[in-house]
């Protein structure tokens, strides 16, 4: 097997119309009702800069790099994808891994109730985005009603339960806002600096710096 065969094998990474239809279904609650426009499984679409997404021509194949036989290395490398069972229902966050947050929690957090981990099951469920969002919604609501301490504690709970959560930038913005509301400007500045280092291109940056400027 040659290197360009490996590269070519990535052609199959495009979603099939059936896969897109399934994804459409999973996101139906976010999309307009069926009938308005083409689905992604129709023609066109695709990422402009990325083109059709086929394998690019490989111009750099090293001479003499050939023939990876069908041997043991292949057997070891292959993951058996097609028969993987579907993911389990995700309703509660997995037990928190060791909290190695890139942005450390602020002070000693107050206990904030979060959904309990599922009872002992064979497989740890993947943390749910809905749970993560719900926790941040609680933090935001607390901030809106003027309870910055509760908002901050909820953000700290988010750090612990969703260390690498998809919404951690949003969490940091809320935490910084809460720190400012508590008059802890130095802590807010420091957290904002850590934020900038961790998420240099975040859409939250502008809001965070506007908050700091407005104080």
């Amino acid at each position: 097997m040659k290197l360009d065969d490996l590269i070519q094998s990535a052609r199959g990474d495009e979603p099939t119309p059936e896969q897109l239809k399934k994804l459409d279904g999973k996101l139906a609650h976010l999309l307009p009702p069926i009938g308005g426009g083409n689905g992604p499984s129709g023609s066109g679409g695709g990422h402009g800069a990325a083109g059709a997404g086929g394998a690019a021509t490989v111009k750099w194949i090293a001479a003499g790099v050939v023939a990876v036989g069908g041997g043991v290395a292949i057997q070891q490398a292959v993951s058996h994808r097609d028969r993987s069972p579907p993911p389990p229902p995700i309703s509660a966050p997995a037990p928190a891994p060791a909290p190695i947050a890139e942005v450390t929690p602020d002070a000693a957090p107050e206990p904030v109730p979060v959904p309990a981990p599922a009872a002992a099951v064979h497989r740890a469920p993947e943390p749910s985005l809905a749970d993560e969002a719900a926790l941040l919604d609680r933090a935001r609501t607390a901030l809106q009603r003027g309870d910055a301490r509760a908002a901050l504690a909820t953000c700290d709970a988010h750090v612990k339960n969703f260390t690498h959560g998809a919404l951690r930038e949003e969490r940091e913005r809320i935490a910084i806002e809460a720190l400012l509301a508590l008059g802890r400007h130095g802590d807010a500045e420091a957290r904002a600096q850590r934020f900038d280092r961790a998420f240099p291109n975040s859409v939250q940056s502008e809001r965070i710096h506007a908050l700091l400027r407005d104080r």
Binding site: N38, G46, S79
Partner: peptide
């Protein structure tokens, strides 16, 4: 979503997510 779903799909795959996921 419509414009970028294919790019997202194949990028997710190529960044190390298994096909089933």
């Amino acid at each position: 979503y419509r414009e970028h779903v294919r790019f997202v799909w194949r990028t997710v795959r190529r960044l190390g997510v298994r096909e089933a996921d």
